[in-house]
Amino acid sequence: MFEFRFGVDDLAATWFAYSPLQEAVLSLRARRSAARYPEQQPWITGWRSRYETLDTALLESLIAPVGFVPDFLTPRPAAPRPDFHAELARLAATPPEVVRSDVLAAYGGDGSPLPPVLAGLIDDPAALTARVAEVLEAYWTRCLAPAWWPRARSVLEADIAYRGRMLSERGAEGLFSDLDVRLSWRGGVLRLTDPHPAVRAVGASVDVAGRGLVLIPTLSGLGAQTDISQVGPPLIAYPARGKATMAEGLDAGLRGDRGGPGGPLAGLIGSPRARLLVLLETPASTTELAHRLGVTPGAVSRHLGALAAAGLLDRTRHGRSVLYRRSRLGDALLGRES
């Protein structure tokens, strides 16, 4: 069990972030365990031919058999919405002794031997780090960035927006109890209990001590987790709310004959706009919607503009992206207003 002890001001310094680098690394778990990550399988199938052109032996060695990941691969985000390449640069600058220690700790969790690709590089951790950075960049560019990441980012953004509301409405106890069943809050102490004996064996008591705890939603977690070593500022990753929606709409189109809604709503605003209105229960960008629906971003953009002008969608800017979500008026039109 891990315990995170909060001082008077530590709760105010707790913040949320997501990490594209962490999502890239942990997405490799989904290839190993299709039954645990069914929502990721359509994506994996779609990029299989591109994935097989990469250094798959090295990529797949980044996840130890027990599921542990060397801590240097998932550094604490430096900002709420970091850039993947900025995070990768931080990874590439990891001291060699830290890389070696983290790899051995991850594989030592259940006594698994190092796979040949790691065994051949573990005594030259600088070379190992350079190769890992190179293969992760290729994996990101060829498989994740074009369509998977825009969809993933919208799910993570929606989770963080929801958690902010939970904190304002229910306070710290309500927030932490809703994050994951492994987490509990009492008397200024946040406890993380992991059922795996290898994790329990390395449990620790951690003083937040003004360093700020960062909470990280992830698509690839089956429960709340933290760093194995606990040598850096404290962090907790937890399963993102709505991660099961990742594959929704991948085979649907804007046209009614491709699965779009029919009936009175389609007759009122047209099938393409009705389809978008149904999809936008959770925030999404123009690029993501275009991929999900198999149409061009320009076609989606025109419909989104019309729906927003009619007051049926709300728009929120996050960095360079604009996320759309159904407004209360849009909910009422669909008969989904609470």
Results as ranks from 00 to 15, higher is better:
M1I: 01
E3V: 00
F4E: 01
R5L: 13
F6C: 07
Q22A: 14
E23W: 07
L26S: 10
S27C: 08
L28R: 09
A35H: 08
P38T: 12
P38R: 11
Q41P: 01
Q41V: 12
P42Q: 10
R48A: 15
S49T: 09
T56S: 13
L59V: 12
E60M: 13
A64E: 08
P65T: 12
G67D: 06
F72I: 03
L73H: 10
T74M: 09
R76I: 09
P77T: 06
A79Y: 03
P80R: 10
D83M: 10
F84I: 13
A86C: 11
A93Q: 15
P95Y: 05
P96D: 12
V98H: 03
V98Q: 09
V98E: 08
S101W: 02
D102G: 04
L104N: 09
L104E: 12
L104T: 13
G108D: 13
D110G: 14
G111W: 11
S112Q: 10
P113L: 11
T129P: 00
R131Y: 08
E134F: 06
V135K: 00
E137M: 08
W140K: 08
R142W: 06
L144I: 15
R151N: 09
R153F: 09
L156N: 02
L156K: 04
E157Q: 11
A158D: 10
D159T: 11
A172H: 05
D180R: 02
R186G: 14
D194I: 02
V199G: 01
V202R: 14
G203E: 04
V206W: 02
G212S: 09
L215N: 04
L215V: 12
G223P: 07
A224H: 06
Q225K: 14
D227L: 02
D227G: 01
P234R: 00
A237L: 12
K243V: 13
A244H: 06
M246H: 05
G249W: 04
D251W: 01
D257G: 05
R258N: 11
P261Y: 03
P272C: 09
R273I: 05
R273K: 15
R275N: 09
L276K: 04
L276E: 04
L276Y: 03
E281P: 00
S285L: 05
L293A: 01
G294I: 07
G294S: 11
V295Y: 00
T296C: 11
A309Y: 04
G311F: 00
R317F: 03
L323I: 04
L329R: 12
L329H: 07
G330A: 08
D331H: 11
G335M: 08
R336T: 15
